[in-house]
């Protein structure tokens, strides 16, 4: 039995233009469309492809969040995951706490691979996978754009500032995904029906016995400073003149 654990975070949908609440206490999420974090969707797609090629026997999707997060887990099941675990949490779970929760699940499930998105598009932290690998004392291959499994190893191509880097890691390991690893499949209606029958287990975060108290305190949310309105020029001549005026050419 070779398992892959995939993390799915419920976030404000990629296409929503997020706005700060007027009182500065957060961002507007009431009535806003929620989705699976896009990087996590890529992680699930990769896990499914590994399983389809015979590299794993079971794909388990895991989420940490409020009860509504079941929606995203059901979507994950419809994509093809075998079962789901919701670690129910009604307050903020920071990346270190999320890593500790995943470690608890790893102890129970003993996966060969844990696949996570490289960052959540809400808090943009880019931490959980690396932290989990450290706590688990296992390899990490972050920002993956290509994953090749051979024996008990994974050869992973990573998107780094300088270009592409390839590393080899022993399994089990934590992999985090970059955008170009794959293109996630669309969910078909019959799969949505089938997903309703797949197991979805809910676990209260408090029952796991890990310290999930937040370490950081967010005291204020502000909209970003707006750039002042620029000028429109008619043609290239005016453009070059404007650049010259600013001393840029």
């Amino acid at each position: 039995m070779s398992k892959i654990l995939v993390g799915l975070k419920r976030v404000v949908d990629y296409n929503v233009r997020v706005r700060v609440k007027p009182d500065g206490t957060g961002v507007v999420t009431d009535g806003v469309k929620m989705s699976i974090n896009p990087f996590d969707e890529i992680a699930l797609e990769e896990a499914l492809r590994i399983k389809e090629k015979g590299g794993a026997t079971e794909v388990i999707v895991v989420s940490i969040g409020p009860a509504d997060t079941q929606q995203q887990l059901r979507t994950g099941l419809a994509m093809g995951a075998d079962r789901a675990i919701l670690v129910q949490a009604d307050s903020v779970v920071e990346p270190l706490a999320a890593a500790k929760v995943f470690l608890k699940l790893i102890e129970k499930e003993s996966p060969q691979i844990v696949l996570l998105g490289k960052q959540g598009i809400d808090d943009d932290n880019n931490q959980t996978g690396q932290m989990l690998a450290a706590l688990w004392d296992r390899p990490q291959a972050t920002f993956a754009s290509k994953v090749e499994l051979e024996g008990g190893k994974a050869k992973v191509t990573r998107e780094v500032d300088a270009g592409l880097e390839t590393i080899e890691v022993d399994l089990p390991a934590v992999l985090t995904t970059d955008l170009r690893l794959n293109e996630p499949r669309y969910v078909k209606l019959p799969d949505i029906m089938k997903a309703k029958k797949k197991p979805l287990e809910t676990v209260a975060i408090a029952s796991l016995g890990v310290d999930t108290a937040p370490q950081f305190k967010t005291t204020k949310y502000e909209p970003p400073a707006a750039r002042s309105k620029g000028v429109m020029v008619k043609d290239v001549g005016e453009l070059v003149a404007a650049l010259k005026q600013k001393g840029l050419v």
């Binding site: 920071e94 990346p95 270190l96 890593a99 943009d124 932290n125 880019n126 931490q127 959980t128 996978g129 690396q130 932290m131 989990l132 690998a133 450290a134 706590l135 990490q140 972050t142 920002f143 990573r158 998107e159 780094v160 500032d161 370490q215 950081f216």
Partner: peptide, 22 residues
């Protein structure tokens, strides 16, 4: 950078603390 993003959370977890990004 990709160097720091890859490394620093692993350091933080080894130290048993969270990380502030960006």
């Amino acid at each position: 950078t990709t160097f720091g993003k890859d490394l620093m959370p692993r350091v933080a977890a080894l130290l048993g603390v969270g990380q502030l990004s960006d």
